[in-house]
């Protein structure tokens, strides 16, 4: 099933997932020291989702992300060092320290921003897709959103609009089992989020979010359909998060040992490694080398982020308008 993924792509996908993981583990550790300001929502555990989707995208495609956006940013090519500096509130950050973890964006990379407003990305992606369609440039827009966001009017309206206008849009519902503390068992009225696709006249698929290849395949079809003018798709990625809703969350709503079991049995990196090394084409040593490189890169990004200056006071008043 991964026939179209050559060796290079596989290594790229692995590096992407590992970078996300390492980045998040590092933010987790550093946040506990109290040095990182604000709220951070970590994506650890969900790496296969962003990676499986974004492996199909180029710099001209757009994605819209969520408050849990670090993974989407990295997968879409945003510089991790700039992201780290942003999270630390530094002038060298992706957004000059003005946005922080919840608002990392890099429009030059087709990354329309993490988002502090749950469901904020759906309508925006309809817009980027509309522009693509009107220009006829065959690019697509992907909206990542959570199970919680799937109940937000903006998302439901956006999916309807996407079909009405036959937009090259892909809606990726990352169902990680919780919206803060609340399970979709409670908050989502139907069995699966993907079931709602029928109501909006688009295909709906469910994939295992710990399985990179499953996500990759489903996303491939959806992106292809969109590029070819076939309209939107809803993909529900069933996954979980390894950490709390945000750092500091005591997670009393979770089952005992839940995360450990997932880490031991389903972890996307573990599965990926097992899969690609079993084929014999890629060696464990190659992957270990990537791990080491990624680790060094993240270490370096933290060292730099810590040392970098905070924004100067003049920055407070700039960037509100293009012109005023």
């Amino acid at each position: 099933m991964n026939t179209e993924l050559n060796r290079e792509s596989l290594l790229k996908a692995y590096r992407m997932m590992r970078t996300i993981r390492e980045f998040e583990e590092r933010v987790h550790t550093d946040f506990a020291t109290g040095e990182i300001p604000g709220f951070v929502h970590l994506y650890a555990g969900e790496e296969a989702s962003a990676t499986g989707v974004c492996m199909h995208l180029s710099g001209n495609d757009y994605i819209a992300s969520t408050h849990r956006g670090h993974g989407h940013c990295i997968a879409k090519g945003v510089d991790p060092a700039g992201m780290m500096a942003e999270i630390w509130g530094k002038e060298t950050g992706t957004c000059k320290g003005k946005g922080g973890s919840m608002h990392i964006a890099d429009l030059s990379k087709g990354m329309l921003g993490a988002n502090g407003i749950v469901g904020g990305g759906g309508p925006l992606i309809c817009g980027t897709a509309l522009a693509a369609k009107l220009r006829g440039d065959k690019t697509v827009g992907v909206c990542f959103f959570g199970d919680g966001a799937s109940n937000q009017g903006t998302i439901l309206e956006a999916m309807n609009l996407a079909t009405v206008w036959n937009l090259p849009a892909i809606f990726v519902a990352e169902n990680n089992g919780y919206a803060e503390t609340t399970s979709p068992n409670y908050s989502v009225a139907c069995e699966n989020i993907a079931d709602r696709a029928a109501a909006f006249g688009m295909p709906g698929v469910i994939v295992d979010g710990f399985d990179f290849f499953a996500v990759y395949e489903a996303a491939g079809e959806a992106v292809k359909r969109a590029r070819e003018g076939g309209g939107p798709t809803l993909i529900e990625v069933k996954v979980s998060r390894y950490y709390g809703h945000f750092e500091g969350d005591q997670q009393k709503y979770r089952a005992e040992g839940e995360v450990q079991k997932l880490r031991n049995e389903k972890d996307c990196l573990m599965q990926f490694r097992r899969h690609v090394t079993a084929d014999g084409d890629i060696s464990a040593a190659e992957l270990d080398a990537i791990d080491a490189e990624v680790l060094a890169m993240i270490d370096d990004s933290v060292v730099r982020a810590k040392a970098d200056p905070k924004p100067g006071p003049e920055e407070l008043l700039t960037d509100v308008y293009v012109s005023y």
Binding site: T181, K252, Y253
Partner: peptide, 20 residues
């Protein structure tokens, strides 16, 4: 409100948060 108790449908405790 959202998570005013917390834990609905989830495997752990109810009133897990009592609001954010």
């Amino acid at each position: 409100g959202e998570d005013n108790a917390g834990g609905e449908g989830s495997p752990g405790e109810m009133d897990a948060w009592g609001g954010v």
